[in-house]
């Protein structure tokens, strides 16, 4: 199984970004969030970026990466008429599924590390006070954990959407809406209820809030991943 996953990853690494125009489109789409989270936010937030949990904004970059690559990998395989031949091969469904997912999530995770390093450089250059500023290990762990959980969450949603969408572009647009709308709704609710929330959570250490949010995301992530795995089966895919 591991060898099969690696085979799918080999192909994904070679073929991702090679579609006509997709390399330029993806790079341009990633450029804005990269500039925001690697330069603009750390520039504006200064030392808070490394000392608090403000660097969590960096997850925007891996989220965008997964949002762009998962539809290309799953809906693209069907749009380009390569899926049925792949399904007629000896590869198990799970190897195709996890091989594709692993490349997108791996790229997102790599991007998160690059953004964390670039933003650290930005803070140290712009807000230099005579000594090198570094993230605490707790901040790095939380950032990386959030990046991973959100990437898997979006990737799983991406698989489910890609299997229903007719084209890569449709899948990317639908996934974009699915990723952006819930945080906006939650943001509006939090703003409206901020006094009540402050009353209940006011005395709580921020790390506990982070952990609670993380736990909720893990549950959602597990549910979506299970649904995506159940949907990604030969007998269903060949009819799609």
């Amino acid at each position: 199984m591991i060898a099969d996953i690696r085979t799918v990853m080999w192909k994904e690494r070679k073929s991702l970004f090679r579609q006509q125009g997709s390399r330029v489109r993806i790079l341009l789409t990633l450029l804005i969030p990269m500039i925001m989270v690697a330069i603009w936010f750390p520039w504006q937030m200064g030392t808070d970026w490394v000392e608090g949990y403000e660097s969590l904004f960096s997850v925007l970059a891996p989220m965008m990466m997964v949002l762009l690559t998962v539809p290309d990998s799953f809906a693209g395989e069907r749009e380009r008429h390569t899926l049925s031949t792949l399904l007629a091969s000896r590869l198990p469904d799970r190897a195709i599924f996890f091989g594709k997912l692993a490349v997108s999530i791996g790229l997102g995770f790599g991007m998160m590390i690059i953004v964390l390093l670039l933003s650290l450089v930005t803070v140290n250059i712009v807000h230099w006070d005579g000594h090198v500023m570094l993230y605490s290990y707790r901040v790095v762990l939380v950032d990386l954990a959030f990046s991973l959980i959100l990437s898997v969450l979006i990737a799983s949603a991406g698989v489910l959407i890609s299997l229903r969408a007719s084209t890569v572009q449709d899948a990317q647009q639908m996934l974009g809406a699915a990723v952006m709308v819930p945080p906006m709704v939650i943001g509006v609710v939090l703003l409206a209820l901020h006094e009540q929330i402050a009353g209940v959570w006011g005395d709580l250490d921020i790390i506990y809030v982070v952990l609670i949010v993380m736990a909720v995301l893990v549950v959602a992530c597990a549910g979506l991943l299970a649904a995506a795995m159940a949907r990604f089966q030969r007998a269903r895919l060949i009819l799609s």
Binding site: A3, D4, T7, W10, K11, K14, S15, R18, Q19, Q20, R80, H81, T82, L83, S84, T85, L86, A88, S89, R90, L91
Partner: peptide, 26 residues
């Protein structure tokens, strides 16, 4: 199998296409 569509990865080379399926079949 050669199904209804050729099922080739058109942005890859011919050699890479066969390399992929060679790896699939170990």
């Amino acid at each position: 199998a050669l199904l209804e569509h050729a099922g080739l990865y058109e942005q890859l080379s011919a050699e890479a296409n066969l390399e992929f399926y060679g790896r699939i079949h170990r």
